[in-house]
Design a protein around this nucleic acid. Structure first.
Lengths: 225, 225
DNA sequence: AATTTATAACCTGTCGACAGCCGACATAAT
DNA sequence: ATTATGTCGGCTGTCGACAGGTTATAAATT
């Protein structure tokens, strides 16, 4: 039967589950940016000991979603404009290199997978499905990295991913964002399909810089109110 | 008086000290690649409890110097040729982006700092000081990242740094390596000095690819014996 | 001798406890 | 009233202990 698991999985340790839990709590704004996080408090809330909580927190610090201040207190990551710029510079460095590799190495099958993602994106836009759009956006970028065939590159991008998530959510705000993003993706896709690393790389960098500009504008706009 | 410290420093926690200790042990080959590492064992050896050891190990896993296998056993990182290639692709992506930024943003003072590093390198070569050469090489690359002014970019490169260390040591083996490396660095330096991001980026990528080719050759050579 | 079974040794994930440090609040001194 | 002193509570870093799952070792069976 379909539901059957063909292989038992070892119990997922608390600290891993917790890492996921905390991550979504942060993403969903349950913990506010700048808010202090306390090991013992979370441990008590979930009726587990501090050890797994500690490990989960350490992992999230590595992901950048939590930050330690001078007094080794732990607070939730607070995006700043400077930081957005830095993160996007990193993404451009990593992803434009990745897409160049992908354009060289991608298989026919992967090309059609990519195309499928673009179609999904189109559907999401038509239905006004914002969450779906964010997901498709992430999926497109992620799949390109996978096609590069470099697992370390993928890991580096994934590490940035937790932070990028914030901005992806912001990024779909603004006039005609869905269409603009899709257009950018299509151009990147075409360059990959033509196996033109140089162009793919440039298109991706342009596209990402455009995202960045949009995000900054929205943040500044919000700040004014 | 001069010796007076104007500010007390908080004690460095065990887990941080230990992280450093373990790192150098791995670098120095005290723990062999592929060798298994056991929390309790290290804890006992150093007469501390498992908690700080655990945290140090987790940190090193993040750096890539330790790896968990399927049974969540912990073993020392084992460089492979595929891996070297992947890591160097990542370095090229990150560092060539960084050097482009540096060429745009570098200050006069930083330019002369960089030049000083090149002079040190020259001295190290003349004196046949291999360790000094490795250090200078690392210093040069690192300082370029700093000049880019992007702290996240720096962190990403630093993360790779722990692994890169292995290969830097290998890289100075081979005929005329010191001179070749220095020549590459000088070219990069000149491009930065001219504030030519495009050229700096290209020179760095070429230089790094050359390092990679050399490293691979040496590794393969060793394998044959 | 080869294979199975039964123990024993080991390791990781988790727990509860304690010490030292820091800040908050309260109380005392000028 | 303001500054100084003292106490309390909270939080992090560290400790030792235990449970459950694995692996290795030794005994038993064929």
């Amino acid at each position: 039967m379909e539901l059957e698991q063909n292989q038992l999985q070892k119990a997922v340790p608390y600290y891993e589950q917790l890492q996921q839990t905390l991550k979504t709590r942060i993403w969903n704004g349950l913990y506010k940016p700048g808010e202090r996080i306390i090991e013992a408090q979370i441990a008590k809330e979930l009726s587990i000991s501090r050890s797994p909580v500690r490990e989960a927190i350490r992992a999230l610090i590595n992901e950048g979603l939590l930050v330690t201040d001078e007094k080794s207190q732990i607070i939730v990551y607070e995006p700043s404009i400077l930081d957005v710029k830095e993160i996007y510079e990193c993404r451009i460095a990593l992803e434009s290199a990745a897409v160049a590799l992908s354009a060289e190495r991608i298989t026919e099958e992967q090309v059609s997978d990519l195309e499928k993602i673009l179609q999904e994106t189109e559907t999401a836009i038509k239905q006004g499905d914002k969450e779906g759009l964010v997901a498709c956006n992430a999926k497109f970028h992620q799949y390109i990295i996978i096609c590069s065939g470099n697992s370390r590159l993928k890991k580096l991008v994934d590490d940035l991913q937790s932070l990028t998530h914030f901005f992806r959510v912001i990024n779909i705000e603004g006039p005609n964002r869905g269409e603009t993003i899709l257009k950018g993706h299509k151009e990147i896709f075409e360059a990959i399909k033509k196996r033109d690393p140089e162009q793919a790389s440039r298109k991706l960098a342009d596209h990402t810089r455009e995202d960045l500009a949009n995000i900054i504008q929205i943040i500044e706009q919000k700040g004014e109110r």
